[in-house]
Nucleic acid binder design. Structure first.
Length: 809
DNA sequence: AGCACGCCGACT
DNA sequence: GTCGGCGTGCTC
């Protein structure tokens, strides 16, 4: 046997603060030789102390790549038997870190289920018995005590001992990713042998005979869960154990997946396609057959049957032995959507969404990684699903803001999807009725392929959309959230036993308390935002930091009792509706009623079962719901989002109104949509009413061109924040000054300026936005800023770099 | 995060 | 003159 030469591993280390974004070299000790591969998680020592951290091996080499003869530390532990990240994932992490200005470690972690991130614990133990009785008492039960669980008194007691070296701190790195192991059994004898064993049994051994009978019904090499066998036979665990001892059967521990799908789904067959759908599927199939990394915009009006197109395209790649990835916005990952895909592809489907526990997510991830699932459906982070034979990526509702992650790594799933489509040489489909301007513009330029669905699958016309001018309403009737026209329409639908969806566009404002005498507005003590009234908890709450206090009856400023509540919240509208329509059954769906897990689904199920007449909610009811009995959709306040100082406000309003309009008349009945607005002349609202995306696109593109906004310019937002305003401001101005040195004259800097809600949780926020087309020096400057910003972070000054930010306010 | 190195105040 | 303050820098 030739001796194994010492090997070295390049490790990206999990040190949240002070990242160098560069791997560290570790020695692979002899006892771990041959066990360490790129893509595995390891535990290593880091720093001068005894600190242990998790790391990712990104490369293994036979030579020490370091020229300096620095003493290398060994890898202490290997956490995986096989790599958890393949070459694709490692390359993707490198790209993602650079592209989004993130640390590599956060990129690597983003690709894995949360359960695989290490849990760090620290413990204390005594190094000597020469301590006071009080201290000895503390360690009477256990040698090691968890540092986090010590009381302040206990800590005080131990503090002096640490200087004397009488105690030591131990660092533990724990892998939280635990597969659930359960007992399985397999019969180990042939039928004749079992029969023979049965004859040898003493009389009266009924249970054992029963077990032998059961074993005979099992196919020879089939492993079954013992729990299932116990349930089937009614026999206890002891009998199975005895059977194993007698050699009738073999017991083993097998990995069992936690099963998040409660109900069985009935398999459905593919529906036949309309000619237009068939053409689209044909184009996609051709690209996947040719192995082309082509991105397509699939622009299809609401109800045009995009989902059926997806399913056909997926089954085509599955037939080629390849895998498919379907991304949907978190909010539309409804049971309806899920069961549609499950019904078509059955056990081939894995699901990744926020409704699953960490353990369930880990199990689904394992199923994918082991090649047991060929189709993955999931929200944003599912774009990293480990599918080695990826043949098709689909992003439904590609314009949705939830595809952008708002903490590090600040990636947009679309960018990652394009990267993976190129890596796998497979097509990417971006589906939407209202594509983002960026995507639509690229389709026009020919960068993306452009597929269109212009007919509704059910042959019905688009619902009739009308605007209600609230300025006129106010002149003729007292101020209310629901106009006379809308009220009359609701009454009519209820009389016909049809259902109504009412949407409140809450973004930007909701009910706040103001003194009618002095104009005092009740604000959050920690944030620059007014408190919102919540009737259910009878309190005033801050939506930014969660601060909560009682509803004031006296003005804190002038002590007047004349406090009024202004604005519109779902609760207030609900109260108003109950007064206007005492017999109507109303379901409310907003952040408050959906906070509990599963509440979202429950409300929708109730509404689907016609247990309510009116579904009243915020944005979350606009997406992907499909209720055949809904014939009226009302939008109570179309324009609140328009006022926001964000160049995308108009685009969002248009998309939202178009989407919600599509909720009416999904099936046989003709739908009707009523939109209440104070700006009936605004082009976003007018064109949403006409359902004219193309004209909206042209008008908005002209606006963007004039203002120098995306898609004509790239944008990067930099935010600084600190607990005192001057420091945050000083830093952002310093960065702006440096940027001016770096940028060419064609680039622009917006700001610096305080963020519109400047103070949140007692931190002050300042920001600037860079608009540019091509800047050769910018990239290096920002990478540099990312690395040096960590030093400031330690002092509490936070710097955030966000490429192509979604929110500008 | 945590440890070492380094350069200024109040003390044996 | 020294002990120790915590600002600064580095961690394979």
């Amino acid at each position: 046997m030739d001796e194994m030469k010492t090997q070295y591993a390049q490790v990206i280390v999990d040190v949240a603060t002070m990242q160098t974004n560069q791997p560290y070299t570790y020695v692979i000790p002899p006892e771990l030789a041959g066990q360490v591969e790129a893509g595995m998680r390891v535990v290593v020592g880091f720093g001068r102390g005894k600190r242990r951290v998790q790391g990712f091996v990104v490369a293994v080499s036979a030579e020490n790549p370091l020229t300096s003869s620095a003493k290398l530390k060994p890898i202490l532990e290997v956490q995986d038997l096989r790599p958890v990240l393949n070459q694709e994932a490692l390359q993707m992490a490198d790209w993602l870190a650079r592209y989004t200005y993130a640390f590599k470690i956060t990129c690597l972690q983003a690709m894995l289920p949360a359960a695989m991130k290490a849990a760090y614990t620290k413990t204390v133990s005594l190094t000597t018995s020469e301590v006071t009785p009080a201290v000895r008492e503390m360690f009477a039960q256990k040698d090691e005590l968890a540092l986090a669980k010590l009381s302040p008194e206990q800590k005080k007691l131990l503090a002096p001992l640490s200087k004397q070296g009488k105690i030591e701190i131990n660092y533990h790195v724990k892998d939280r990713a635990k597969s659930k192991l359960v007992l399985a059994i397999k019969r180990s004898l042939s039928e004749t042998e079992l029969q023979a064993a049965k004859t040898k049994l003493r009389k009266g051994a009924k249970k054992q005979a029963q077990l032998l009978d059961y074993l005979q019904t099992l196919p020879l090499d089939k492993e079954v869960f013992q729990a299932n066998a116990q349930a089937k036979t009614g026999l206890g665990a002891a009998i199975f154990k005895a059977g194993a001892e007698k050699g009738w059967l073999k017991q083993s521990k097998v990995e069992s997946y936690r099963n998040p799908y409660k109900q069985e789904v009935v398999k459905t067959e593919a529906k036949s396609l309309l000619p237009q759908q068939a053409q689209v599927v044909q184009a996609i199939n051709q690209a996947s057959d040719e192995g082309k990394a082509q991105t397509f915009l699939l622009q299809g009006i609401t109800g045009s049957g995009k989902t059926e197109v997806y399913l056909h395209a997926i089954s085509h790649v599955l037939a080629q032995g390849k895998q498919a990835l379907l991304l949907v916005p978190e909010i539309s990952l409804t049971p309806q959507m899920v069961s549609q895909v499950k019904a078509r592809f059955g056990k081939e489907v894995a699901m990744l969404h926020s409704g699953l526990s960490d353990g369930e997510k880990y199990d689904e991830w394992r199923r994918i990684e082991r090649g047991e699932a060929q189709v993955v459906v999931g929200a944003r982070s599912a774009i990293f699903a480990p599918l080695p034979k990826l043949g098709l990526i689909i992003m439904d509702e590609e314009h949705e803001a939830s595809y952008k992650q708002d903490d590090m790594p600040r990636y947009h799933a679309r960018d990652v999807a394009i990267w993976r489509s190129e890596y796998h040489a497979c097509p990417l489909i971006l589906g939407s009725a209202t594509p983002s301007l960026e995507t639509r513009a690229r389709a026009q330029k020919g960068v993306y392929g452009w597929l269109k669905l212009t007919h509704r699958a059910n042959g019905k016309a688009l619902p009739a959309v009308s605007l209600i001018d609230m300025k006129k309403e106010i002149m003729t009737a007292p101020v209310q959230d629901i106009s006379q026209v809308l009220l009359a329409a609701i009454k009519q639908k209820l009389a016909q036993k049809e259902q109504v969806v009412l949407m409140l566009n809450r973004r930007g404002y909701s009910s706040f308390a103001m003194c009618r005498e002095c104009g005092f507005v009740l604000k959050c003590p920690n944030c620059d935002i007014s408190l919102t009234m919540h009737l259910d908890s009878h309190s005033m709450r801050c939506h930014y930091c969660g601060h909560e206090q009682g509803i004031p009856s006296v003005c804190p400023s002038c002590h007047s009792k004349r406090i009024g509540y202004y604005g519109t919240g779902t609760e207030k509208v609900e109260t108003e509706l109950k007064e206007l329509l005492p017999t109507a059954r109303i379901l409310r769906m907003d952040v408050d009623t959906t906070r509990k897990k599963g509440a979202h689904e429950k409300i929708l199920r109730q509404f689907g079962a016609r247990k309510a007449d009116i579904l009243l909610g915020t944005q979350m009811i606009a997406k992907g719901l499909d209720f055949p009995n809904v014939t009226l959709v009302g939008v109570l306040n179309a324009d609140t989002a328009l006022e926001l100082p964000d160049f995308r406000a108009s685009e969002r309003t248009f998309q939202l109104l178009t989407q919600v309009s599509g909720r009416a008349g999904r099936a046989q009945k003709q739908g009707e949509v009523l939109i209440q607005t104070f700006n009936p002349e605004n082009y976003a609202i007018k064109l949403a009413q006409k359902q004219d995306y193309e004209r909206y696109f042209r008008m908005e593109m002209a606006v963007r061109h004039r203002g120098g906004y995306p898609p004509y310019f790239y944008t990067i937002k930099i935010t600084t924040s600190y607990r005192d305003e001057a420091t945050a401001a000083k830093k952002i101005f310093q960065i702006a000054g440096q940027l001016k040195q770096v940028l060419s004259p064609t680039a622009q800097i917006l700001g610096p300026s305080p963020r519109s809600v400047m103070r949140v949780n007692n931190r002050y926020y300042y920001q600037l936005v860079i608009k540019y087309k091509r800047e050769s020096l910018l990239e290096d400057y920002l990478q540099h800023l990312l690395l040096i910003s960590q030093k400031e972070e330690r002092q509490g000054l936070r710097i955030v770099i966000d490429r192509e930010p979604i929110n500008f306010i």
